[in-house]
């Protein structure tokens, strides 16, 4: 019960921030995919840079555990291609579709229904997929630091520097 309430409050905060940053709009999402408007990339990279430092700091202090997903090239690459194709058509991603509906963009509702339908189709395809795409290129739970065999902090610092250089370039190009 307490966990559910925390989920709701966390979602409200996130939805509020997404709306204020105007990233819930189809025009912004398509703008990013068409490389014409980097507002979403600025938002996402800022969130990643900040949370990356905080989460790894807490992890080093033994206060939180990481949630690392498996790298399976077949499933990741084919899944990503399908995701990108669908995202370009819908213009919202799973989380932002709810936020878009919240600010009155009710075309998102057809997308939400489509996503529930897609999930039901996936549940039926799953046995077949476990014998095919999930077998192709399974590297287990790797991270960039573990693949390079180095500490995570140099990777974090380089990631932040690249992000800041990108931000500067976006502003210069007025993207």
């Amino acid at each position: 019960m307490k966990l559910i309430l925390m989920g709701l409050v966390t979602g409200i905060l996130f939805g509020f921030l997404l709306q204020k940053a105007t990233v819930l709009r189809y025009d912004r999402q398509l703008g990013a995919l068409r490389l014409k408007d980097m507002t979403i990339v600025k938002f996402m990279l800022s969130a990643v840079c900040v949370s990356m430092v905080g989460v790894y700091l807490l992890h080093d202090l033994g206060m939180v555990s990481l949630s690392i997903k498996s790298t399976i090239l077949g499933a990741n690459i084919i899944g990503a291609i399908l995701f990108g194709l669908g995202w370009g058509l819908l213009g919202y991603c799973p989380g932002t579709s709810l936020g878009a509906l919240g600010e009155g963009r009710y075309d998102a509702l057809w997308g939400i229904i489509g996503m529930v339908f897609g999930a039901a189709v996936f549940a039926r395809a799953y046995p077949f997929l476990t014998e095919t795409v999930y077998q192709w290129g399974d590297y287990g739970k790797v991270t960039i630091p573990s693949a390079l065999g180095i500490n995570h902090w140099p990777v974090i610092i380089v990631f932040i520097i690249i992000s800041l250089l990108l931000f500067r370039w976006f502003e210069k190009m007025k993207l």
Partner: peptide
């Protein structure tokens, strides 16, 4: 249609 394809891909890539 986009939502259906997107979600199938998202679940596949976990």
């Amino acid at each position: 249609a986009g939502g259906a394809v997107l979600m199938f891909g998202a679940r596949m890539a976990d």
